[in-house]
């Protein structure tokens, strides 16, 4: 049995490119997602990282948790710097100053750096067709500076700048559909990724790496601190997010949409909302309203399965 490697989990790349000793909170699924993605991407990788949780926790000077070349850039230009790195590598190889080999250029940022502040640079990089991967780690608020709302915060979530109260439901707008914004750029590969589904994650990261042009991965990253929940539930809540339809897992490959984890019967939204303190103030009527909208969005996605967008 031992020699057959029958357990798929044991085939997971064991090398840790995001070293231990980083300062992420207990149960940070974002740090887990970084570790998983870079385990799959391998060592020939250059990362440009926007300001955010992952920059703060991994690179408090003079330490670094990274074992691959890594640049810290400003909040808004991670995608621009990554595209510059890619263009630089291309010309160095052309002039013969670097041996020709496959180097993956990765831009990474949180939801604030992607959906709000860095959207312009990201849109430019996607449109110019650089062969790079942009990874958005979506923890649904500005967690690094103290849980302020972003355009990626879901409806009803209480944050420090959208506090729940007698006259407020918390965040009053719906989450921005970032993967579809990028899919509208007609890039070869766009996918939503969830670290609670590691094998789905691995196959999507490999596809993004092999894509002939820009690829975009939108990663669901549970933040126990900002979502006011128990750290041990971080993986379980990610699983529930996809089962309830809050964060459907799909990919758009050359414009064609495919749902990779189909969920014909969605779980009740209550299961997802209950463990999270940020939704504690919601009454049953509001939850039912959100559930209806989530279901609507998911069925809309289902109807587009297999279609060229």
């Amino acid at each position: 049995m031992e020699s057959l490697n029958v357990f798929a989990a044991r085939l997971w790349p064991t090398e840790n490119r995001f070293a231990s000793g980083h300062r992420a909170c207990q149960g940070c699924a974002e740090a887990l997602a970084v570790r998983m993605i870079h385990g799959v991407l391998g060592r020939n990788t250059i990362v440009a990282s926007a300001t955010g949780c992952m920059e703060i926790i991994s690179s408090s000077y003079p330490d670094t948790a990274w074992t691959v070349p890594w640049l810290h850039v400003a909040f808004e230009n991670a995608a621009a710097v990554a595209s510059g790195v890619e263009a630089g590598l291309k010309i160095l190889v052309k002039k013969g100053k670097l041996p020709k080999r496959k180097i993956t250029v990765v831009g990474m940022g949180g939801d604030g750096a992607t959906a709000d502040i860095g959207l312009q640079a990201l849109s430019g990089a996607m449109e110019r067709g650089h062969k790079m991967i942009y990874v958005c780690y979506d923890n649904e608020a500005y967690m690094n500076t103290g849980i302020q709302r972003s355009s990626s915060t879901p409806f009803g979530a209480s944050t420090t700048t959208s506090p729940a109260g007698s006259l407020s439901v918390g965040q009053s707008t719906w989450k921005k559909n970032m993967p579809m914004v990028i899919a509208a750029h007609n890039v070869p590969y766009v996918a939503t990724v969830n670290p609670s589904f590691p094998f789905d994650l691995a196959s999507k990261v490999r596809k993004a790496q092999a894509a002939n042009g820009p690829a975009y991965l939108h990663v669901y990253a549970c933040c126990p601190t900002g979502w006011r929940m128990a750290p041990e539930l971080a993986i379980a809540i990610g699983r529930l997010a996809s089962r309830t339809g809050v964060f459907p897992l799909y990919e758009v490959e050359n414009g064609k949409l495919h749902i990779t984890v189909p969920t014909p019967k969605l779980s009740p939204l209550k299961e997802y909302i209950q463990p999270q303190g940020r939704f504690r103030h919601l009454d049953d009527a509001t939850v039912a309203e959100i559930e209806k909208r989530v279901e609507e969005e998911y069925r809309k996605l289902e109807r587009r399965e297999g279609l060229v967008l």
Binding site: A19, H22, S60, P62, D63, T64, T67
Partner: peptide
């Protein structure tokens, strides 16, 4: 912990994975 006069250009960190020195 280098002194400010000893910093590398761009305050580059030259030891990959050095966060392992911090026992969390």
């Amino acid at each position: 912990r280098p002194k400010w006069t000893e910093l590398a250009v761009g305050t580059a960190v030259t030891c990959p994975g050095s966060s392992r020195a911090t026992k969390t």
